[in-house]
């Protein structure tokens, strides 16, 4: 027996909420892959703690998505029963963990974006999104500080750690442009005060990343061609492998509960 995929309505608000939920779930899942593999016990716990925060944020957003869609679906339906093309997360968060430096740099690039994003979204005219943002911004603040401290330690560390952190920054940089894209449908939500315009956060994001990179003696790559497609469901090969792990149980044992 096998559970097939669901197709959700393509309304702008639902698509927007699912995109933010997918960012949190996919990055949370990536961090959870470190559980039991961290470079030291404290980091093992830190990465698992942050995974828990992100998956918690995803749960709140998926639950709200269920209310928005009004089709009687719960958080699990969106997480476990949508295929790769139904996921709307940015490509950055689905990139593999690689070594510890790569995980940390990915965390820095995303946290420096999402922390001010949640704070701005607290002013959303959508009460539920504003409430979720108010919860999430306290957590993302801790995540940003953690990633900043480690980026500095690795970049300004040994020749080996510096080289690895620089390589991670160079390779992940082309995935940062997508953080600031807004679809036509999302533009309407921005105009209505429901979503916020990420472009307004770009300068602040760049300032945070540049300051941390500077202290870490890392060189920011030049802005060149940027990867995109995740928000429209065009993902890298990595997401499929991640979802096969994440969704296996519900697909193989439909409706399993314990």
């Amino acid at each position: 027996m096998y559970t097939g995929s669901i197709t959700v309505a393509e309304t702008p608000l639902l698509r927007y909420v699912l995109g933010r939920a997918d960012d949190a779930l996919v990055l949370g899942h990536r961090l959870s892959e470190w559980c039991g593999h961290g470079p030291m016990l404290e980091e093992d716990m830190a990465l698992s703690n942050m995974a828990l925060d992100l998956i918690g944020q995803a749960r709140a957003l998926y639950t709200y998505a269920g209310e928005v869609e009004g089709a009687g679906r719960d958080e699990d339906a969106y997480a476990y029963l949508r295929d790769v093309t139904g996921y709307a997360n940015v490509l950055l968060v689905e990139q593999p963990n690689g070594d510890f430096a790569r995980t940390i740099v990915r965390q820095l690039l995303f946290s420096a974006f999402i922390d001010p994003y949640w704070r701005a979204l607290m002013a959303s005219t959508d009460q539920t999104l504003a409430a979720i943002a108010a919860k999430a911004e306290k957590e993302s603040a801790y995540h940003l500080r953690h990633a900043s401290e480690w980026t500095i330690r690795l970049g300004d560390g040994t020749a080996e750690s510096h080289a690895r952190a620089q390589q991670a920054l160079d390779e992940l940089w082309p995935f940062t442009g997508e953080l600031f894209t807004v679809s036509a449908a999302e533009r309407g939500l921005v105009d209505a005060g429901i979503a916020i315009d990420p472009e307004a956060l770009r300068a602040g994001w760049h300032a945070i990343v540049a300051r941390v990179a500077g202290r870490a003696t890392l060189t920011l790559p030049a802005d060149g061609w940027m990867q995109r497609g995740g928000r429209e469901g065009r993902h890298s090969e990595h997401l499929g492998h991640l979802l096969s792990d994440l969704q296996y149980l519900q697909r193989a044992f439909p409706g399993a509960r314990w």
Binding site: L52, D53, G56, Q57, A60, I132
Partner: peptide, 8 residues
């Protein structure tokens, strides 16, 4: 109300 969103 939850303390942390992911509070198990």
């Amino acid at each position: 109300t939850p303390t942390y969103t992911g509070c198990p």
